[in-house]
Computed example of a mutant assay.
Amino acid sequence: MNLSSEANSSPLIELRSVSKTYGSAEPVAALHPMDLRIEPSERVAIVGPSGSGKTSLLNLLGLLDRPTTGAVYLAGREVSSLPEPELCAARSHEIGFVFQQFFLLEHLNAVENVEQALLYTGATRRSRVAVAVRAMDRVGLAHRLRHKPSQLSGGERQRVAIARAIAGDPSLILADEPTGNLDTQTGATILSVLTESAEDATTVVVVTHDPGVAAAMDRRIEIVDGRITRDIRVGAR
């Protein structure tokens, strides 16, 4: 993890007076100005109705989008105004993503899909494969390395996606409805895999509609109409 020394004295990620507006002729405010601090090792759920701004918030936390106003800080460093190459580098090295739709490449097998997350690390292919294999083992899929996505169940595909997210030991994992396409029992297993396979110092932020997922986190942030309406800390792990 590359930010550990800085993260000891700063929030892992922080939004200061951040807002997000889309469109110019008739602008739509997706997020109204807000402040948010998320600390290292926190397990956070972001909840709210459809259209509340959850995805816009996740995109800002993941450095996938830039705020209209305000600034985003990663381990104390302002990153929202960085040039695109530097922003991509910060995203690639520090953030792992897990999506509802898995986004696995069908022509690659499971371990090759995980290896894709390591292409920008500068490591040799042999090293990348070794890291990918370890990540697959951490999510309980060491026996499915050579299977294509079409040969895996939905729960197994999501495990591969989690392995891809954790392979580089990122500082932050962002998960967008990671159990949304799965049955209840499989979803509960995936949630356990996600939180247990991440390193202890890794921050995990999950966007979810599932109250069970939210209840399993240490902190719940509720967002309605682009505003944070509640921020509840349930307790440390």
Rank of each mutant, 00 (worst) to 15 (best):
A188L: 12
G168Q: 08
A198G: 07
S192F: 13
D169M: 12
P170Q: 07
G168S: 11
R164S: 01
P170L: 07
E177A: 01
T202S: 11
D176E: 00
I173F: 08
I190N: 13
A167G: 01
V193Y: 14
R159D: 03
E199S: 15
A163L: 13
S171C: 10
P178I: 05
D200A: 14
L174R: 03
I162W: 13
A161S: 13
R159C: 02
G168Y: 06
S197E: 06
I190D: 03
E177K: 02
G187S: 00
D200M: 07
A167Q: 02
I166E: 09
A161N: 02
I173W: 12
V160M: 01
A165H: 00
L172E: 01
P170C: 09
V193T: 15
L182V: 05
T202C: 15
S171G: 10
N181V: 00
P178C: 12
S197G: 07
G168D: 02
L191F: 12
P178G: 08
L172C: 07
E177C: 04
D183P: 00
V193D: 10
A161G: 08
G168T: 01
T184P: 03
L191Y: 04
L191C: 10
D200F: 11
T179G: 02
D183N: 00
A198D: 01
T202V: 10
I190K: 04
I173H: 03
A198T: 04
T186H: 10
S171Q: 09
T202N: 04
T203I: 10
L194M: 12
D169Y: 12
L194T: 06
S171Y: 13
G187L: 03
D169Q: 14
L174F: 14
L174G: 08
E196I: 02
P178A: 08
T184E: 09
L182T: 06
P170H: 13
I162V: 15
I166T: 13
P178T: 07
I166W: 10
A175C: 05
R164Y: 11
S197M: 08
R159A: 06
S197Y: 10
A175K: 03
D200V: 10
N181R: 05
G187M: 03
E196H: 14
V160R: 00
G180R: 03
L172Y: 11
T189I: 14
